[in-house]
Amino acid sequence: MKPESSHLKKKHISPYSTVRWVILVITLLIIMVPLIFVIGGSFKTSANLYQHPFGLSFHPTFSNYRAVIHDGGMLRALFNSIIVSVITTIAVVVIASLASFGVTFLSGWRGILPYGFLVIGLAIPAQASIIPQFVLFRELHLLNSLLGLIVINTALLAPIAVFILTSFFRKFPVGVLEASVLDGCSTMNVFRRVVLPLSRAPLSAVVILVFLGSWNDLLYPLLFIQSPVNRTLPLALIDLQGQYVTNYPVLFAGVVIASIPMLILYVVLQRQFVAGIMAGSSTG
């Protein structure tokens, strides 16, 4: 690997760029080697992985995948995760974009107050409210159901979506919107036909952030879900560990199944992923 500038301009390789490349290559190795081992190991037998961790497997076995699918219920969990994440994402986008529109364009305290109420949740960690939520969901008979997970994920992920969307809506030229109203457009139509189509970037950030948040959540499934048919992927993975303890190839096959959808999305939508995560982390 050579620094790009050197083979473009044929200039000397500076000590800075040598050091830079050494550091970057080491970093890439540290990040990628564990991932490569997970993928490679998922096609090995346990004995093979222990004896030749660095060896390439020329006799790939699919027995680990058969094990996690048959005994680990990973396909069912994959299906559940898709259902929960997709519906949560739709629900959050709907209620959060409506709310953000409302609080942005209401003047004075009537806008500030509900906005403050909605985003104060960003400071509340899930672990602080989960115990009473468990009691509440038990009373509502929403424990041990995918619907319960969807409902709680929607409530928890709405604040971050409101934060991102509101900060975007606030940059809107109000004149354009007022003109549409004067032209006889209803408030709902201003929202649907003017504001939403212009908000693709923040909406895709919200979609990614919310999808990722509910896809990777273990906390609520762990407390709310009891029966194996309702498990989502992270919970099914944790249960695999109880079942297979240190049979790494089986665990790895589970990890691969749980991660492949995200890997594909990341490769396809990389820019939106980065924008979404960045928007999420700058809330502090």
Binding site: A99, F101, G102, P114, L118, G121, P132, A155
Partner: peptide
């Protein structure tokens, strides 16, 4: 406009703020 934020405020108030 207030109607727009009612669903979010209700869901969020009942499921997050109240439990907290």
């Amino acid at each position: 406009l207030a109607l727009f934020f009612v669903p979010a405020v209700l869901v969020y108030g009942f499921l997050v703020i109240y439990p907290t």
